[in-house]
Design a protein around this nucleic acid. Structure first.
Length: 444
RNA sequence: GCGGCUAUAGUUCAGUGGCAGAACGCCGCUCUGUGGCAGCGGAUGUCGUGGGUUCGAACCCCACUAGCCGCCCCA
């Protein structure tokens, strides 16, 4: 006679934290397809997988990504690790906001350059940025990235590598079925070019920066390059009049860029040179690029971005090791594919079929449960996908479940267990047959 | 970090001060070894959280949280 209105004391429910989310089984097949395709494509180009830690010393990102970038200055999940002994120093740690710095750290730490070989490394994994969540922008998000890095003698600096990476990305997006991608390409020059350009830019900005928005005024001071890709309407006239990086490229950088473009032309990979494409991370030199799409992402239309980082290894205290790499926003890739699939379904009026199991086994009565599980075990071992009902279910209920889950139902009553002649009904045809256990696999 | 919009059943959503609703889905029965279709019946719920106004709040006000959209930035 307990009072059913006596509800348990309310407890606050725990939810996924802001900007994070669960990927349920209706989502993960697409993720797995994307990742499997990526691995297959990358391995055809000689890339091997690297797995680095999801957290690193904060210093790595400060030096690698750049102290003045938004990522480092305001978007990192950083904490002070407890010192476990008086003699131990507390360490400042950070959840990785991107993976290139970590990969290059590993390259240096494991002396991969000493092999003399070009290293082609890829990764797939979560990254963390403390930004305001939005469509296609999460606080835990996934990136698929690859890096080509090695000593100069390995050919890591060759424009061939830039073109190969870009061609690989074009092939990957094609193979995944991304239909409307666009490659934006630019060169920001080598360290010397950038230094000269920065001086010229500062000179040009000095008399006009007061007329610009506060953000651009700040950038004019801290990172003048970033003024160039500002989208602030009111400042566009001023920005268009600023010096162009292309005019400050040295002969070497210019020639490098020309060769990248020539190789892309030869491969038939379309691109648009965008002189204002300046990527946000400090380590980029020479080639920079971005692939954008028009479906599914709204204003977060950059699907992936990357570029060359010839000085990064040295910035991290390693040997000279030119490299080029990119990071694909996997979440955005998935959103794009989903948006395309929805558009296709709407156009054709055909909803994609749900995947079904091969067999649903319905024991009729709990006495048949052990036999049902035994049969399931055997069929699964022979490679079939199988679900087992419970003998307490009414037969109608079993059919209901079976029809949703599987292509065939096997009824397992006393007779079937005793004779080893199974009753099998196929939902596609509605046909019901008696099949001996020995002939079952062939009959399905 | 800034601005706008939003939050009601499992889902999509209606409800603008007076009994908490619809569709789909779910459960039961018609039908105890035959599902889908159909008929009948049923449950959907702290109306995001906390406070305030009011005789009375899903509705008005405030704060918070979360989501979406945009800005910033980035993948």
């Amino acid at each position: 006679m307990t009072d059913s209105k006596n509800k348990p004391a309310p407890r606050p429910t725990i939810k996924a934290v802001r900007g994070t989310r669960d990927l349920l089984p209706d989502q993960t097949p697409l993720w797995n397809r994307v990742e499997a395709t990526t691995r297959a494509v990358f391995s055809r180009y000689g890339f091997g997988e690297i797995r680095t830690p999801v957290f690193e010393a904060t210093e790595l990102f400060a030096r690698g990504v750049g102290e003045e970038t938004d990522i480092v200055s305001k978007e990192m999940f950083t904490w002070e690790d407890r010192a476990r002994a008086a003699s131990e120093k507390a360490q400042n740690l950070t959840l990785r906001p991107e993976s290139t710095a970590g990969v290059v750290r590993a390259y240096i730490e494991h002396k991969l350059g000493e092999t003399g070989q070009l290293q082609k490394l890829y990764y797939i994994g979560p990254q963390f940025r403390r930004e305001r969540p939005q469509r296609g922008r999460y606080r835990q998000f996934w990136q698929i990235g690859a890096e080509v890095i090695g000593p100069q003698t390995s050919g890591a600096e060759s424009p061939l590598r830039d073109a190969e990476v870009l061609e690989m990305l074009a092939s990957l997006l094609d193979e995944l079925g991304i239909r409307d991608w666009k490659l934006e390409l630019n060169s920001v020059g080598n360290a010397e070019d950038r230094a000269r350009f920065n001086v010229a830019l500062r000179e040009a900005l000095a008399p006009v920066k007061d007329q610009m928005c506060p953000d651009n005024q700040r950038r004019a001071e801290t990172n003048p390059l970033r003024v160039l890709d500002s989208k602030e309407e009111a400042d566009q006239e001023i920005i268009n009049a600023l010096p162009k990086i292309a005019d400050y490229l040295g002969e070497e950088s210019r020639e490098h860029f020309e060769q990248v473009k020539a190789a892309l032309d030869a491969c038939g990979v379309p691109y648009h040179v965008n002189p204002r494409l300046v990527r946000g991370l400090d380590y980029y030199t020479r080639t920079t690029f971005e692939f954008t799409v028009t479906t599914g992402l709204g204003t977060q239309n950059a699907l992936l971005g990357g570029g060359r980082y010839d000085g990064l290894s040295e910035m991290l205290g390693g040997p000279k090791a030119p490299g080029i790499g990119f990071a694909i926003g996997e979440d955005r890739l998935i959103l794009t594919l989903q948006a395309q699939a929805e558009a296709d379904a709407a156009a054709s009026g055909i909803a994609p079929a749900e995947p079904k199991l091969d067999v649903y086994i319905a024991p009729l009565g709990i006495a048949q449960n052990p036999a049902a599980l035994k049969l399931a075990r055997e069929l699964r071992r022979e490679g079939l996908s199988v679900e087992v009902g419970d003998g307490s279910f009414k037969i109608g209920k079993s059919f209901g479940f079976a029809d949703k889950l599987a292509r065939h139902i096997i009824l397992l009553g006393e007779d079937e267990v005793a004779t080893n002649i199974l009753t099998v009904k196929s939902f596609a045809t509605g046909e019901q047959r008696k099949i001996s256990r020995a002939e079952l696999i062939g009959a399905l």
